[in-house]
Design a protein around this nucleic acid. Structure first.
Lengths: 231, 231
DNA sequence: TGCTAGAGTAGACAATGTCAACATACGCTC
DNA sequence: GAGCGTATGTTGACATTGTCTACTCTAGCA
């Protein structure tokens, strides 16, 4: 249970009995996923790569699903980090939104399988929630968007107060679904070529931001936008 | 090879030796996929459901991938049919676009696993193209959109001539990626609840169409929007 | 009537996810 | 430092799966 709360970053190395298997397995999974672009690798192959017996991973993950959840969580961390870095030194709130969009699309296109794992509904039925890190990363990303919007990314500043919640959610819904869709169409090669990714993102983005500046759609109450809350 | 070109519609029944196994298997796969919401069913279970030996499906599909491709193709046919029916008796081009969007989102939300199979990049690497029916259905859908836009769905009629190709592609890219993203966010429960699907679609759609009426983004040349051509 | 090719069956094999039983070594308590 | 519990890793087993090869049957054609 606590294995889920540890970071993948190389700080705080704590070599175990035969090394840090939890991290080794997750990293091997990330490697194989990125290489093969498929989640249909075997736990046994990860074990082989890590140089342990085929059952050792089961001391760290209840089943394959849980391992994939950990990989997904790493993906969210990476994405959140990249988005945060992309916006770090930008003053213009609109530029910050654009930079986030670029980072989002780029991340997805560069590793479609990871992106699909993260967002593709393989995990996260109503039975088992997503890992905590994952939700944290998602909330961080959402906060970045909210900041940019409240700073005036849509033409005028919008106070980040509860009365504006539905307006924020409407804007985020449009922004997110547009970028999500573009990312997946590019990643799955339904539009392309992907080396035009940046120009396409830019074109779609600017039109959308202008549209949002003009009119933010009113979304109904009782809607959630973001990782599902405990329900 | 010719097995791929047959329709799933119940016309032209041709009982074989032990029935029409090809169709029976595809229908069983569609059932299991819809019920379990997963592509990780076994060919053997389909064979069991169809009452044949575990190897009989291999007389009709080279491997599981090919079976899934056939299921995906059926999904495209169904979606294209639903979109065509939704727009059939609508005069307003803008209403036709909206109806298509509703049909698209609704189809995805009601059967996420099928939608993911169709669009999720599991099939269609550069090695093996998608089946012909699938591409036909996709082109039909695209034609519907082009018709609506040229009829004035974005405020003014736009001639469907080659000089306007990039404008059409830009508009379709925005429209499609927005709806694609919304569909997947809803299907994967990243926004919700899905019983508010129609209102959310409506809200996002109207804003987007207004935005497009105002300004259609210029997309770079050399971009394809739609199922990848033979490359 | 008899043959041939398509359609279905039977059996086999390696690989996989996962379970249970066993082994080992780290780190705590005394 | 000795002893021990528990986390960690190993071995073996089992049912299931995708897929191969070899077989049987039957429909339709000569």
């Amino acid at each position: 249970m606590d294995g889920m709360t540890q970071d993948i970053s190389p700080k705080d190395p704590r070599p175990y009995h035969h090394g840090d298997l939890h991290r080794a397995i997750v990293e091997a999974a990330l490697d194989v996923l990125s290489e093969s672009q498929s989640t249909e690798f075997s736990l046994r192959e990860l074990a082989r790569r890590a140089g342990v017996s085929h059952n050792a991973p089961y001391k760290h993950f209840a089943d394959k699903r849980e391992l994939l959840a950990a990989v997904s969580a790493v993906g969210f961390e990476l994405l959140a980090k990249r988005m945060a870095e992309a916006t770090k030194e930008l003053d213009s709130p609109r530029e910050r939104l654009a930079a986030m969009a670029r980072a989002y699309v780029c991340g997805g296109v560069n590793n479609p399988a990871l992106y699909r794992l993260m967002f593709g509904g393989y995990l996260g039925g109503q039975d088992d929630g997503r890992p905590a890190i994952e939700r944290t990363a998602a909330y961080n990303m959402k906060a970045l968007i909210v900041d940019a919007i409240s700073d005036g990314a849509l033409g005028r500043p919008i106070a980040d107060v509860e009365a504006n919640t539905r307006m924020f959610d409407g804007a985020i819904l449009v922004f997110w679904s547009q970028m999500h869709g573009l990312t997946l169409l590019l990643a799955d090669r339904l539009v392309g070529p992907s080396d035009k990714m940046e120009q396409l993102t830019e074109a779609v983005l600017q039109g959308m931001l202008d549209g949002l500046a003009n009119c933010i759609p009113a979304i109904p109450s009782g809607v959630w936008v973001g990782p599902p809350l405990a329900e």
